[in-house]
Structure formats: structure tokens, C-alpha cells
């Protein structure tokens, strides 16, 4: 009873917050939804922009990337895409890779790869934006 009374004032939500297999509650799941909603308009903007850029010269492409609005939206697209991609691939790996060592190794490689690709893309956009 003593143990129960110390929790008496906590709501059911308060008790389960921060629990779950990774002690992060629903954070992973929720961030996947948040990034997916943000990626909806960003990806459609990106696809339409790529159609507009088809067949343009190197300089025209650089000038398009370097526009402040385009550079900011590109960096946002990059950060959200690789966050969403890492979160999605993590779930797929956790579901299908049974062996614990292989699972952790694959997760580390994939997460590291996502971070590196995001840095490479972000750095490229910023380099072009600051150079022009």
C-alpha cells in the first residue's frame, strides 16, 4: 500500500510517460508523424522545383539553390527527410533483423549513414548559398 500511495496523485498518463521498450514512450512514433506532415508540402515543392530545373544549365541550377528561400526550404527538406528516413528504417530493421548483434550493428550503420548523408546534403546547399 505504501508503494501505491506514493503514486496516488499521478495520473495514468503520467505513470506511462517515458516508458516503453526504449524508455522514450511514444516520442519515436510521434516524431515520425510530425516529420511526415512537414514533408508533405516540402516534397511536393521539391518535385515541382526539380521539374522546373530540368534541362537548365549548371549556373542556373546554382543560382536557384542559392536563393535564400530555396536554400532554407532545401535545408529543412534535408533535415526532415533524413530524420524520417532514419526513423522508418529503424523500425524496419528492428522488425526483420532477429540476431541482436546484427540488429545493433545494422542500426548503427544506417543511423550513421543517414547522419552523414544529411551533413553532406546540408553542407552542399550552404556552400553554394554562401558562395554566390
Amino acid at each position: 500500500m505504501a508503494e501505491n500511495s506514493s503514486h496516488a496523485l499521478r495520473t495514468p498518463l503520467g505513470r506511462v510517460r517515458g516508458l516503453g521498450s526504449a524508455r522514450s514512450g511514444t516520442h519515436h512514433w510521434w516524431m515520425q508523424r510530425v516529420t511526415s506532415i512537414a514533408l508533405l508540402p516540402l516534397t511536393i515543392w521539391f518535385v515541382l522545383s526539380m521539374i522546373g530545373l530540368a534541362g537548365t544549365t549548371y549556373l542556373e541550377t546554382l543560382l536557384w539553390i542559392a536563393t535564400p528561400l530555396n536554400a532554407v526550404l532545401l535545408v529543412a527538406l534535408i533535415l526532415l527527410t533524413f530524420h524520417h528516413m532514419a526513423a522508418g528504417l529503424q523500425v524496419v530493421i528492428e522488425d526483420y533483423v532477429r540476431n541482436e548483434f546484427a540488429r545493433i550493428a545494422t542500426l548503427l550503420v544506417v543511423k550513421g549513414g543517414c547522419a552523414l548523408l544529411a551533413l553532406a546534403c546540408g553542407f552542399s546547399v550552404l556552400r553554394i548559398a554562401f558562395a554566390l
Binding site: L117, A120, S124
Partner: peptide, 28 residues
């Protein structure tokens, strides 16, 4: 899941495109 994973591969093209643009005309 398959289309999501396919797009993960597609980001390699995005990275190649952006890095090439930042590198120079030949790479682009």
C-alpha cells in the same frame, strides 16, 4: 515499407546531385 525503403535509396541520388553541384561543373 518497400516504397519508403526505395526512397531511402533515392536520397543517395539527391546527395550525389547536391554534392556534385557544390563541387564543380565537371561533377555536375
Amino acid at each position: 515499407r518497400i516504397t519508403g525503403t526505395a526512397w531511402a535509396g533515392g536520397t543517395l541520388l539527391l546527395t550525389w546531385w547536391l554534392m556534385a553541384a557544390a563541387t564543380g561543373e565537371g561533377a555536375f
